[in-house]
Simulated scan of single mutants.
Amino acid sequence: MYAPARHDETTGLLHYIDQQLTAIRSALYGLTEEQARATPCRSALSVGGLIKHAAHCMRGAVQRLTTEVTTQPLDAAAVAEFTASFAIGDDETVAGTLAEFDDARTELLAVVSRTDPATESTAPPTPWNGIHDARPIHTRYYLVHLVEEFARHAGHADIIREQIDGAAVPALELTLAGAPANDFFTPYDAAPGTVLA
């Protein structure tokens, strides 16, 4: 949880991004490899797939924040890579995917910490949203979009996890943070050998 604080804008945005990434990551706690790949809802989303997709998004965000923004729409190869980022492949493991997530997270947070939200930037075309031209923005717009994007996927991960075994991500987060039991929270007891246990 990002506790109330009087932080500057960059620090606040960094903490909100990190809060959502913590939620996505915590959804894996106590799952088996099979459960992390499970798709218990009507979509093809899994907790492990969301970890992989978040890592993909973080790598893209680092590139976006550190290089010139392209004004061209995504090509077919980029669209295929994006689509594939939602599922752990047969040749991949949950542990490997989690390691990529952790590496991408460290890099993204370092870049965000050095980013001025008031910097002028450009939003590339997003034809899936009906926007076919590049638009001028401040970097703040993009950083807030990252909060939105990761929050959406944190919600997906929470719902999927609850469908698997009834565990709610906020309780998993508190358990991983070492919070003691209280009137509102009972720590989760992960089975040995499961993810993050």
Results as ranks from 00 to 15, higher is better:
residue 93 T to N: 10
residue 41 C to W: 06
residue 64 R to A: 08
residue 69 V to N: 03
residue 22 T to S: 12
residue 108 L to H: 05
residue 118 A to R: 13
residue 60 G to Y: 11
residue 83 T to Y: 01
residue 19 Q to F: 10
residue 39 T to C: 12
residue 48 G to F: 05
residue 114 R to Q: 13
residue 113 S to G: 09
residue 47 V to I: 11
residue 89 G to W: 02
residue 51 I to P: 06
residue 54 A to G: 02
residue 79 V to G: 03
residue 89 G to T: 05
residue 33 E to D: 15
residue 59 R to S: 12
residue 118 A to T: 14
residue 91 D to K: 05
residue 36 A to F: 00
residue 53 H to G: 00
residue 120 E to C: 05
residue 38 A to G: 01
residue 55 A to K: 01
residue 119 T to F: 11
residue 60 G to M: 08
residue 61 A to T: 09
residue 74 L to H: 08
residue 27 A to M: 09
residue 99 A to F: 04
residue 64 R to C: 09
residue 73 P to H: 08
residue 78 A to M: 09
residue 60 G to T: 11
residue 116 D to Q: 03
residue 33 E to R: 03
residue 83 T to P: 03
residue 69 V to Q: 12
residue 84 A to N: 07
residue 68 E to V: 12
residue 43 S to D: 10
residue 105 R to K: 07
residue 19 Q to T: 10
residue 109 L to E: 09
residue 35 Q to D: 07
residue 43 S to W: 00
residue 28 L to G: 10
residue 108 L to V: 07
residue 108 L to T: 03
residue 34 E to Y: 05
residue 56 H to Y: 15
residue 122 T to M: 14
residue 28 L to M: 12
residue 61 A to Q: 07
residue 55 A to D: 01
residue 40 P to F: 11
residue 71 T to K: 06
residue 88 I to Y: 09
residue 117 P to N: 08
residue 90 D to S: 15
residue 35 Q to A: 10
residue 35 Q to G: 02
residue 116 D to R: 06
residue 71 T to R: 10
residue 119 T to W: 13
residue 25 R to W: 00
residue 65 L to D: 02
residue 78 A to R: 07
residue 104 A to P: 08
residue 125 P to W: 09
residue 124 P to K: 04
residue 34 E to I: 09
residue 60 G to F: 09
residue 78 A to L: 08
residue 72 Q to N: 12
residue 70 T to C: 12
residue 113 S to M: 00
residue 119 T to K: 15
residue 96 G to Q: 05
residue 121 S to H: 10
residue 52 K to S: 07
residue 55 A to V: 03
residue 40 P to M: 09
residue 78 A to W: 00
residue 74 L to C: 02
residue 18 D to K: 07
residue 115 T to C: 00
residue 101 F to D: 06
residue 111 V to C: 00
residue 117 P to S: 04
residue 99 A to S: 11
residue 29 Y to D: 01
residue 123 A to M: 14
residue 116 D to M: 01
residue 58 M to V: 04
residue 92 E to K: 10
residue 115 T to S: 03
residue 114 R to Y: 01
residue 109 L to Y: 06
residue 71 T to L: 01
